[in-house]
Computed example of a mutant assay.
Amino acid sequence: MIDNKGRLFGKINLLDLVVLLGILAVAGRFAYGALAGQEAAPAGQDQTIEMTFRVPAVTQWTVDAIKVGDDVFDSKSNTWMGKIVAVDAEPALIAWEVADGIVSYESDTHFDLYVTIRGPARVSPNGITMSGIEVKVGRSIQFKSAYWAATGTTVAFNLTPDQQ
């Protein structure tokens, strides 16, 4: 079946055949994943939600810069996520490792911010997306506005906020 030049049936190079089959397998896997994913995902329901994210250990400058009414964008895609409806600041809890263990104290100079934004979302059994960006509790997202940028962790959703 394989001749002295390494060709299968004297016509096909065995190494070229293996490479070609590998490329076809990878392309087929991506095509199947794309087609199956489109068919399996339910459409979801559009609604307005509130999402709260925590921005840890920021300075007073950041606290002063983030204001209710600011438009919030995803930093990576520059996609509009919503408007800020609440900002709460509390002293940051700083942990310090010492010889006897870990000591924690409230900082006088740094704050943990809890920022709540309201915006349009698609809610489905597969998850929640705001402006096409998947958001989940515990996920870190980089946010920005015209005047500030911060990295926060999503801590809560309110799927049926009171419309004001």
Rank of each mutant, 00 (worst) to 15 (best):
V26H: 03
S131V: 03
R54Q: 13
V72D: 01
A92W: 08
I23Y: 08
Q45V: 12
M51P: 01
Y105M: 06
H110M: 14
A92R: 07
P125W: 06
G37I: 01
I94V: 15
Q38G: 08
T109F: 11
G119F: 02
I94F: 07
T116P: 05
G69S: 11
G22W: 09
D64H: 09
Q38I: 05
L24R: 03
V68D: 12
A41M: 06
G132M: 11
Q38F: 05
T109C: 05
D88Y: 05
A36D: 13
M51Q: 04
V123H: 10
A40R: 14
T59F: 06
I128K: 03
M51N: 02
G44K: 07
Y32P: 02
T52N: 08
A41H: 14
A57C: 08
V55L: 11
D74F: 03
A86H: 03
G28S: 03
T109W: 04
S124M: 01
A89K: 15
R122T: 04
D74N: 15
N78A: 08
S124P: 01
V85P: 02
A31Q: 07
A27E: 04
P56W: 10
A86Q: 12
W61Q: 15
A40H: 11
P125K: 12
M51E: 00
G37L: 05
Q47T: 05
G101N: 09
V98W: 11
T129S: 14
V72K: 01
L17R: 08
G69F: 01
E106S: 07
T79V: 13
I117A: 05
K76C: 01
W61A: 14
W96V: 11
F73P: 01
D100T: 13
V68T: 15
M51C: 11
E50L: 05
Y105T: 14
I49E: 04
D108F: 06
T48S: 02
Q47H: 00
P120A: 14
S107F: 04
V58E: 08
S77Y: 07
Q45W: 03
F111A: 06
S107H: 10
A92D: 12
D88F: 06
R118Y: 00
V26M: 12
T62N: 03
I128T: 09
L93R: 15
H110N: 04
W61G: 12
A65Q: 12
P56S: 14
I94H: 09
T59S: 15
N78C: 04
T116F: 07
A41L: 14
D108N: 14
